[in-house]
Amino acid sequence: MLAIESVSRTYPGGVHALERVSIAVAAGEIVAVVGGSGCGKSTLLRLVCGLDRPSAGRVLLDGGVVTGPHEKIGIVFQEPRLLPWLTVAGNVEFGLDGRPRAERAGRAKVQLARVGLADKASAWPRQLSGGQAQRAAIARALVTRPQVLLLDEPFSALDAFTRIDLQDHLLDLWADLTPTLLLVTHDVDEAIVLADRIVVMKPRPGRVHEEIAIDLPRPRDRQSAAFDFAKRRVLCALDRSLARPGVDREAAAEAGAALWW
């Protein structure tokens, strides 16, 4: 159980990135965080994975306070961030330091096969395509069997086909160990395909605006009416989250949509 308890983050320059954000994520649950730019989505993930510390509030994993990078919390960044001087297999093994060589190699091999990169084990990262590199990054994060996997707009730099392919693939991988997934995205389709629950945030300062449960059965059909309906609910919530007080509804929705897209 991952609990984010009234977390605030103010940067030294006075920028108020997050204001009393509370999100509870059950074990094995998939939660997507969506919101316009500047609503602190990425800051939130950096706080959960311990790269940054909250100014107030705390992050709890199974009751223990997360004060820094945690062995049970893995993260996949927007960019693959593979280490260019290690082979693909070397990158996947990176987080397994301290274990016997044979075990590291074996686990990396299994994980690479799981993400469909078995034949790229000895390639350099520069030889991978964008989608392959992101698969390798996912393998690196999963090989340590984290209890919580954070994903920071993991597929936003990929083309539409690769993105849809990797979204489905991610659900397969999730089914192996059912880690808790906390996904930040600005792609509403992606959020609805993947998540059990969507947290809509609003900007300046970043706060939780609304939570929407998505109880569609998996695998989810992107063309179905139910999918469309869920999408409209999330888009409306996003519009409301960006509306400014005292502005007429219609105009605010349009301005919000323009901002968002």
Binding site: C49, G50, L51, G68, P69, E71, G74, I75, F77, E79, R81, L83, F94, G95, D97
Partner: peptide, 11 residues
């Protein structure tokens, strides 16, 4: 910095 953060995430 992004590569250094990878090192930090893996403690």
């Amino acid at each position: 910095r992004k590569l250094v953060e990878v090192g930090r995430v893996f403690r």
